[in-house]
């Protein structure tokens, strides 16, 4: 297997992580815990499949997926910001809610308990079309998300407010920053971005399958924490985790290391990072605080 093909595989695995981690960083830097990434992704995948199926166009699917993620992002935002509900509980509830809703509407729309009918993907093209066929704009977009989020967080007035709100909401408020509004925007955006990761999965596999995100939202969360809430480092962590996964796929059948051990790597690294073994992991000061 050539090096380029290997890198293409890493990229394909990394793209959903990059979208979700990029979105999650925004929410977390605004002070809202991002446990709902998994649900946002799954909602994106399902809405994309529905939109794509009924229109026949992957672009419509992408749009529907983004809207679906935006909707659940807003739900998360209303519950945690307007009603100050426990952010951890809301995140978990959103994940369960989306699993249930997608299963319910899978039955309602496609009369199936496991998957949607085949949907159209993006037509090939692009410089690496041989290795990245069918991904259309999703891979370039996925690669752009992290730099774009980094630019937004560190180089724009909105980013400055976002960080202020996440570190010290009371101080930001006294300076006239609309704390709630900044958080609404951040969490809604995180839903839309994470959903794009799910859209990619559905379009790439040409269908929606039950629980197809399979924990990827949690890996993205792990990447955010391992990247110490810095978007660029989180992006690198996504690539690192995707690299480990590629290695595991390549080694399948060789028995050298049980696949379960390789699958643990992101989670173990995150626990180690949280325990402060490799430098201190400093979350945004107001992360998870209700008021």
């Amino acid at each position: 297997m050539s090096v380029i093909a290997l890198l293409a595989q890493v990229l394909r695995i990394a793209v959903p992580y990059l979208f979700a981690a990029g979105g999650g960083v925004l929410a977390e830097r605004s002070g809202i815990v991002s446990l709902g990434l998994e649900g946002f992704m799954l909602s994106g995948a399902f809405c994309a499949a529905v939109g794509d199926y009924y229109s026949g166009s992957a672009w419509v699917g992408l749009l529907c997926g983004i809207l679906g993620g935006l909707l659940f992002g807003l739900l998360h935002a209303v519950a945690t910001i307007r009603y100050r509900a426990d952010q951890v509980v809301v995140g978990i509830a959103i994940n369960l809610l989306v699993i249930g809703l997608t299963r319910f509407f899978l039955r309602l729309a496609f009369d199936s308990s496991s998957n949607s009918p085949r949907i159209a993907g993006f037509e090939g093209g692009g410089p690496l079309s041989g290795w990245l066929a069918g991904a259309g704009p999703m891979i370039p977009l996925g690669l752009l998300v992290i730099p774009a989020v980094a630019w937004l967080v560190y180089r724009t007035p909105f980013g400055l407010r976002l960080r202020a709100v996440g570190e010290h909401p009371a101080a930001a408020d006294s300076l006239g920053v609309p704390v709630a509004r900044v958080r609404y925007v951040a969490v809604a955006l995180s839903g839309a971005l994470a959903a794009m990761g799910g859209v990619y999965l559905a379009l790439d596999q040409h269908q929606f399958t039950d629980q197809m995100t399979a924990g990827r939202g949690y890996i993205a969360l792990a990447a955010i924490i391992f990247g110490r809430w810095n978007p660029l480092r989180a992006g690198v962590a996504c690539l690192l985790f995707a690299g480990a996964e590629t290695l595991q796929i390549q080694m399948q059948g060789t028995q050298a290391i049980p696949s379960q051990f390789v699958s643990m790597i992101p989670y173990l690294l995150t626990i180690v990072a949280l325990a402060g073994v490799v430098g201190r992991a400093n979350p945004p000061a107001a992360l998870g605080k209700a008021e």
Binding site: A79, V90, I92, L96, L97, G100, R103, S113
Partner: peptide, 16 residues
């Protein structure tokens, strides 16, 4: 699966 939705809504509604 309706029940799963119902359970998730209960969690969300209690949290709120």
């Amino acid at each position: 699966q309706m029940v799963e939705v119902f359970q998730a809504v209960v969690i969300l509604a209690v949290a709120v």
